[in-house]
Design a protein around this nucleic acid. Structure first.
Length: 745
DNA sequence: CTCCTCCCTTTTTTT
DNA sequence: AAGGGAGGAG
């Protein structure tokens, strides 16, 4: 019956089979954490515990789904799908939707994303007549979010003497009032932001003992993955839910805590034993993922951090290949070098595209890699950037859909009340807002009562406003068998389609394709939802799902063999055979936007680098560029301090340590060093042709691309470029200043 | 009320 | 480099 446990090591087995009481599993990178979690849940079910009494909180929706599938396999029973598994946000939203009456929330809530929150704050600042320079909207949003994650509502915020003193010192004394207004407006809009989902769940359990008891009974066994990244509010909810039965199992690794900016409180994991004195601690220290070299590098890096739980990660895996360091001139060259390594090792070792992953610190870095991969005809996919849902046309369209389920949503309403333009201008809108504020109600309620108060507005405006109201109501009343049919209807009747058709070719194509993609995705959502839930989804089901989408969720089918690109944050919890960690430069990784002098900031960046290294199974490539385009300027960069924290003997021996002084070195010297680290075709410096000697028609040799034919020369001076057709990679445009070509004929 | 142009900021990571 | 906001003309 428990046959599946034989797959585990003694320590893993212990972690999987201690059923009752608090348990903390310190799971080092690659120590089989997911395996332990799935076996543990399977074990609980096999001992007779109902899957409906198990709550498993994961970091992404994808992780939750994969977990269910694996448990399903272990047990050969569909019981697995009855486990409550998902992210904090999706699980708690489910509870809030069920219990909405107890919090005086409407049934159909809208979820505001970061963008919506920011727009709302800007509105409020305008209404208050406050300057955005003094009250930076991003800072205001951050403060409000921080307060909620610490369970401070507007009332507590305004009565917190220390916070008030802080705000006065920072010259933002009205922040508390802004928070209060923001929260009030969200309430009138029937809207919750991400932090509210957690915050209100706490309020729900804390203020309603009967509900706390109800859910404590349901969630008899609670498992929390990535515990090091939980925040104070999440921790307090867990404390409440486990008061009666104490059956809490947390899994985490303090060395992989990388979400402090999101309120993650590393104390949660460091203090677990204090919080749950009867806790058992199991440490998983054997790494099954990486080679000896990768692990040694990672261990050296993380040892630089002062604040951490003591543990020693070890492995029986082979030593493996040394780490390759790639030094590039700029971000474009960096991408070309990375892709050419990738191409080379793919051909040499018969590796699939899907074995390669490129990790970077910031989303903006993906562009040159995409270009380079496209040039080489290598399929790739950028994971995790949610930019699709941030596109204007998508947001506009979703605003219409949101208004169908919740017309009080002021953010959605203001977004489309005059899009496409229908003669409702700023004056009318401001008037409307004034009326709503005066009556302390939503704009939609004003629209509903328009005929009673029409004397307040010009007759023409009233007609147009009624037209908009009728449009939304017609959507609400329309009946379709399928959501995508409704979506299609809304697209046409709202006037969005006509507006998009009227744009220039390029815009028209890209926007209508995006809308089409969205409508297709609605259709496939309907199919999978119906398959899993034995009933058709409502529009609300769809909107909630996309509101809480997490980075790993856009799972492409496994048969597509493509290179993966993502941020290090998005790579958390995943593993890949061959990993390129790129942009290893001071101020980029570690990123410095505030103070790199703050040891806490550096330690968090270092943990991030540690996470990146430990994703790799077989081989790591590290790269950095010596200049980079930032804020419209090309600036010199220095190699990351993290590179020097890896022992030199772990690198490929032809390579030199990057020195901090290197960036001040001039380009000629950079050009010399260049050859040693990246070339397949060695070109001694004295053989590099002067720029003016390169002419169309010549055969030339490039260090990376090999032999090629100069088709043409363009540009002058610093910008002089050559179009070269290479035997290996086809046509390339090279900036001659950097190209370092040798003339063959 | 709408459209156009110019200027400004933005780039940290994500639920 | 690009998109949004402000401000002005029609």
């Amino acid at each position: 019956m428990f046959d599946f446990l034989h797959e585990l090591t003694p320590e893993q087995k212990k972690a999987a089979t201690i059923v009752d009481g608090p348990l903390m599993i310190i799971a080092g990178a690659g120590s089989g954490k997911t395996r332990v979690l799935t076996h543990r849940i399977a074990y609980l079910i096999a001992t007779g515990i109902s899957p409906r009494n198990i709550l498993a909180l994961t970091f992404t929706n994808k992780a939750a789904n994969e977990m269910k599938q694996r448990i399903h396999k272990l047990l050969s029973s569909s019981d697995a799908y009855a486990v409550w598994a998902g992210t904090f946000h999706s699980m708690f939203l489910r509870i809030l939707r069920t219990e909405h009456e107890r919090l005086s929330l409407a049934e159909n809530i809208t979820i505001y994303d970061t963008d919506d929150t920011l727009r709302r704050i800007k509105y409020i600042l305008k209404e208050f007549g406050l300057d955005e320079k003094q009250y930076n909207p991003n800072y205001v949003a951050h403060r409000i979010s921080e307060a909620k994650m610490k369970l401070l509502g507007p009332f507590e915020y305004l009565n917190h003497s220390q916070i008030q003193a802080e705000d006065r010192a920072r010259r933002v004394p009205q922040l508390g009032t802004i928070y209060q207004t923001y929260q009030h407006q969200l309430q009138l809009s029937n809207a919750l932001d991400f932090d509210d989902i957690i915050y209100y769940t706490y309020i729900l359990f804390n203020n309603h003992p009967d509900l706390l008891e109800k859910y404590s009974q349901i969630f008899r066994y609670i498992l929390v993955d990535e515990y090091q990244d939980t925040n104070e509010a999440q921790y307090q909810i867990l404390k409440l839910l486990t008061t009666y039965h104490q059956n809490i199992c947390v899994v985490g690794d303090d060395a992989q805590s990388i979400y402090a900016f999101r309120g993650a409180n590393i104390k949660n994991i460091l203090n677990f034993q204090k919080d749950f004195p009867s806790a058992t601690i199991v440490k998983l220290e054997q790494n099954f993922r990486s080679t000896g070299i990768i692990l040694e590098a990672a261990n050296h890096v993380i040892q630089q951090n002062k604040k951490q739980l003591q543990k020693k990660l070890w492995t029986n895996n082979p030593t493996g290949q040394p780490i390759t360091l790639i030094k590039a001139l700029d971000e474009v060259h960096e991408a070309e070098e990375v892709v050419s390594r990738l191409f080379h090792s793919k051909n040499t070792f018969q590796t699939k595209n899907g074995d390669f992953t490129i990790l970077y610190r910031t989303n903006a870095q993906s562009r040159p890699f995409e270009d380079a991969l496209r040039k080489m005809n290598i399929p790739y996919k950028v994971y995790g950037s949610l930019s699709f849902y941030n596109r204007k046309e998508i947001k506009d369209f979703l605003a219409y859909l949101k208004l169908i389920i919740n017309p009080h949503d002021e953010e959605a309403l203001l977004r489309v009340i005059n899009y496409p333009t229908r003669g409702i201008g700023d004056v009318t809108i401001n008037h409307l807002i004034q009326l709503a504020r005066k009556e302390n109600t939503s704009i939609w309620n004003i629209l509903l009562r328009l005929n009673n108060i029409s004397h307040a507005l010009p007759a023409g405006s009233v007609i147009r406003l009624n037209g908009f109201k009728n449009l939304i109501q017609s959507f609400q009343e329309s009946k379709f068998d399928h959501l995508y049919e409704l979506a299609m209807h809304v697209y046409k009747k709202s006037g969005m389609r006509q507006d998009i058709e009227s744009l220039n070719e390029e815009e028209k194509l890209s926007r209508s394709q995006n809308i089409e993609e969205l409508i297709n995705s609605i259709q496939s959502f309907e199919q999978s939802f119906t398959f899993e839930n034995f009933k058709a989804p409502t529009l609300a089901d769809y909107l909630y799902t996309i509101s809480l989408i997490t980075t790993g969720d856009n799972t492409p089918s496994e048969e597509e063999d493509h290179v993966k690109l993502m941020t290090v944050h998005a790579a958390k919890g995943l593993e890949f055979p061959i990993v390129f960690i790129v942009g290893l430069e001071e101020n980029l990784f570690p990123l410095s936007y505030l103070e790199l002098t703050d040891p806490d900031n550096i330690e968090e960046e270092r943990r991030l680098f540690y996470v990146a290294l430990t994703r790799a199974q077989r081989k790591v490539f590290l790269s950095y560029a010596q200049t980079r385009f930032r804020f419209g300027d090309r600036i010199a960069t220095a190699p990351s301090r993290f590179l020097r924290e890896i022992p030199q003997h772990l690198f490929e021996q032809t390579q030199k340590y990057p020195s901090p002084a290197e960036t001040t070195v001039h380009k000629t010297i950079i050009a010399k060093n260049q050859n040693s680290s990246t070339s397949k075709h060695h070109i001694p410096p004295e053989e590099i042709a002067p720029i003016e000697h390169i002419l169309p028609g010549q055969q030339v040799l490039h260090a990376t691309f090999g032999k090629g034919y100069v088709e043409s020369i363009e540009g002058e001076g610093e910008r002089k470029r050559a179009v070269v057709v290479f035997d290996s990679v086809g046509k390339r445009i090279l900036v001659l200043k950097f190209a370092r070509l040798k003339i063959l004929s």
